[in-house]
Amino acid sequence: MGIKVDDICFLYERGTAMQVNALDHVSAEIPDNQFIGLIGHTGSGKSTFVQTLNGLLKVTSGHIYYNGEDIDGDKFDKKKLRSDVGLVFQYPEHQLFEVDVITDVMFGPRNLGLSAEEARRRSIEALESVKMPKSLYKSSPFDLSGGQKRRAAIAGVLAMRPRILILDEPTAGLDPRGRDEILGLIADMKKELNMTIILVSHSMDDVARYVDRIMVMGGGKLLYDDDPVKVFRHVKELEDLGLAAPQITYIMKLLKERGLDVNTDCLTVKEAAQEILAHRKELHV
């Protein structure tokens, strides 16, 4: 099951001189329980793409099927889709509005028509998943720190118990520690909650070490859709798109160019260190 995207297009300002092909014949499958990185620079169509997945934007042509059903079909329940496919926007803390954290998180479940009791239970679960200290449940969301606000906002979507969670640039504007915390949190959520997570980002370094699969978008097209290691073999093409491979990839490639026969498919510092140490005898130090 999951989402099947069949040849979708999306046009902004259709029929005017300013018409933009934000999505240009994109097809993909998003199965259950996968960790996907969606990468592209600003204007690549990645934000438009994720908004079509939960029905916020209606595709201009093509079809999207959720568990086999066309989401633009007459009988299709869009509200159910929006709770099943959770979307966390960029700077989600800008959408907080309630008097305290827990009430804000309950907004989503309450909109699903759940009782206050059930909504509260789910909200507490969601807040636990984002590791929000209990003492803050009753604080005003506006008194939290930047990282805490963001976690509260993520909990607000998580409380709807989505099967697929999409996070659009969840680390934007955070400092290195905030970024590592949020990314670690997302990786933990993936393990504990058995859902599909789509992490939208323009940073290869952020995404490389976590995901099972990378989709690269550019100019409204889905250009690569493969294992991270295989995608990063296209360093040159990625650079032409204004993206870059992880820094580690560059180091390993340079080592190989200079004659050290290392495997260049390393993504993290740890992997690279192991790979280099395996060739210890050939080194100069």
């Binding site: 959770g86 800008h94 907080l96 907004f107 989503g108 709807m160």
Partner: peptide
Amino acid sequence: KAQIARGADFESRNLVKKIKSLVPLLVP
């Protein structure tokens, strides 16, 4: 859009509901 993604309903015809539904939009 973000509030719709959280299940908010901005299209209700009931006036009281409609005004109430604006709170999650207007506060932020």
